[in-house]
Design a protein around this nucleic acid. Structure first.
Lengths: 193, 193
DNA sequence: GTACCGCTAGACAGACCTGTCTTTCTTTGT
DNA sequence: ACAAAGAAAGACAGGTCTGTCTAGCGGTAC
């Protein structure tokens, strides 16, 4: 009643990805060694290096994973479920942020963290720029649905509020999401057709 | 015609601080080794460790230095000189940012960078939280002078725009400062008595 | 003139990090 | 039954990092 090799492989890969997610999201890239990922995922070193030829590859996989879990699975899905109109769903992003900021072990935005840690020239930093653009894509889509003018420009300003509030939360401002939501409301008014 | 020992000491200390400033501001803390600071400052290793008993001490000194040069010497001074009223001087912050974002070797905000890199529990991260609060202090002071309501609350929202625009600039948005300034104008209207 | 103090130069220890390799075991496919 | 393939456990090499230490040099103070 043991697992098949295929299951073994995906199980091992999954454990690595889970461990990398927890460690990288919480403590950053450089502060976490491969040995720590191995210890937490209970995987052999050779297994990790079979699935991910280098630490950079693992980091890129982590960022993809982060986009699935956090961007789409958490922020996008959760805020969509909290509003009925596109405008409500946009503003609900900051309600989701509010809860997120107050949760245990708030880890800020991995895309910002990694971009600043590795720099925009590093492959991981470049990937972060793309993942951040995808977040703006969600915002721009809703802006379009809401009939706002210049959805992409709107999304860039909106994103400033999202990122600024995240940094403020990392500093310890417990009301950062509320403040950003206020400014976000004004921004919507500004961009009404 | 050689320098006195006192001059020697301050000269060495100054060279260390200058090198640390360039390197840490541009590439972060963990990515820069002590040996690199030594090489660039042309100082002996023992001299560096005499002035700064550990790398952490050097980092704290760098952050203090950054506050003097960047917060006060650049942002505060430059934006003050660009406006005649407190309100103009507030908005001029984003004009200064615009130029800063477009300068060669834009390095983002060291306080944000180091806070995210080291975490809020590390001494350096904690120092960043204080230095960031000092930036808000400048904003709150001008808000008070401008007769705006709740200057501290105002400054917290304003700071979200500053930090958000910096991250956007780090991503490559060349108009980040303009967008933030627009929202900042609306924020001032919101806080008029 | 002599004792002192800070600087230079660089070797060194001890820790850590990435990535490779070996060995043994288990499961699958034929 | 037996080859292939993947995983576990961990030793190992080569590099990097922080921080200490030794040795010598030049200027200062008394």
């Amino acid at each position: 009643m043991t697992v098949s090799p295929a299951d073994d492989a995906t199980a091992a890969r999954g454990r690595i990805l889970d461990a990398a997610y927890d460690l990288f999201a919480q403590r950053g890239i450089r502060a976490v060694g491969i040995d720590e990922v191995i210890a937490q995922s209970k995987v052999a070193k050779a297994t990790l290096y079979r699935h991910f030829p280098s630490k950079d590859d693992l980091v890129l996989a982590f960022l993809k994973n982060r986009e699935q879990r956090w961007t789409f699975g958490f922020v996008e899905a959760e805020s969509r479920s909290r509003g009925t109109t596109p405008e409500e769903q946009l503003l609900a992003i900051f309600d989701v942020f509010h809860d997120w900021f107050h949760g245990a072990g708030f880890e800020a935005c991995s895309f910002i963290n990694v971009l600043l840690e590795m720099g925009p020239d590093h492959p991981a930093g470049a990937a972060c720029v793309k993942h951040l653009a995808n977040i703006r894509g969600v915002v721009a889509g809703r802006a379009r649905d809401a009939g706002l003018r210049e959805p992409d420009e709107f999304a860039r300003s909106w994103h400033i509020l999202m990122k600024g509030s995240i940094i403020s939360a990392a500093e310890g401002d417990t009301k950062a999401a509320r403040r950003a939501k206020e400014m976000a409301s004004a921004l919507i008014e500004q961009y009404r057709a």
